[in-house]
């Protein structure tokens, strides 16, 4: 396990040299400093068990920004989902009673689905959700979205291929 001891050394050097600017880079993106500190910590946590990448690290700044960027995207996704969910809730004609646990659970499910569908176009996502969530037939989806059945079927193929790659490839 020579590798991981060495990695540990690399991570602690990276931390000493780069933590400060990474945090300020994140602060600029996020606008708040406590979230920036959290994400900067998470960025370094992600480096653990990345022995191979750390051994051949040439551009530590670029590497750290790439990792941090990925975390930022997740963070924004989570924020967007929570915000959209609250908006959708408040737009309901009948208020829905929900315990904090239920809310946490549904936000987790939503995030999981959003992660799964990330990278697909919004139209494809919508088609896929209408089919799999609402159980609409292709002609019904086509009618609702003003598309041809053929386009709907192609989008479904694309979405399934995408999900398969995310989950199993």
């Amino acid at each position: 396990m020579l590798g991981s001891a060495h990695s540990h050394q690399i991570i602690s050097t990276l931390y000493t040299n780069h933590y400060a600017w990474l945090q300020s880079w994140l602060r600029k993106k996020l606008g708040t400093s406590h979230e920036a500190a959290d994400l900067a910590q998470d960025t370094f946590l992600r480096l653990i068990n990345k022995d191979r990448e750390l051994q051949s690290l040439r551009e530590p700044k670029a590497y750290l920004t790439t990792v941090a960027h990925g975390l930022l995207v997740n963070h924004w996704r989570r924020q967007a989902i929570e915000h959209a969910y609250l908006e959708a809730l408040s737009a309901l004609p009948e208020p829905m009673a929900q315990s904090p646990e239920e809310k946490t659970l549904i936000l987790e499910i939503l995030e999981q689905i959003a992660t799964l569908l990330d990278g697909l176009s919004i139209r494809t996502q919508q088609i896929f959700l209408l089919s799999q969530l609402d159980g609409l037939t292709y002609p019904q989806i086509a009618k609702e979205m003003g598309l041809t059945v053929n386009v709907v079927q192609k989008a479904m193929t694309k979405a399934m291929t995408h999900c398969y790659e995310v989950l199993y490839a």
Partner: peptide
């Protein structure tokens, strides 16, 4: 609710 949340959050994001 789930669908509209996902679509609008994808848009927002």
């Amino acid at each position: 609710l789930i669908r509209s949340t996902l679509v609008s959050s994808a848009n927002m994001q």
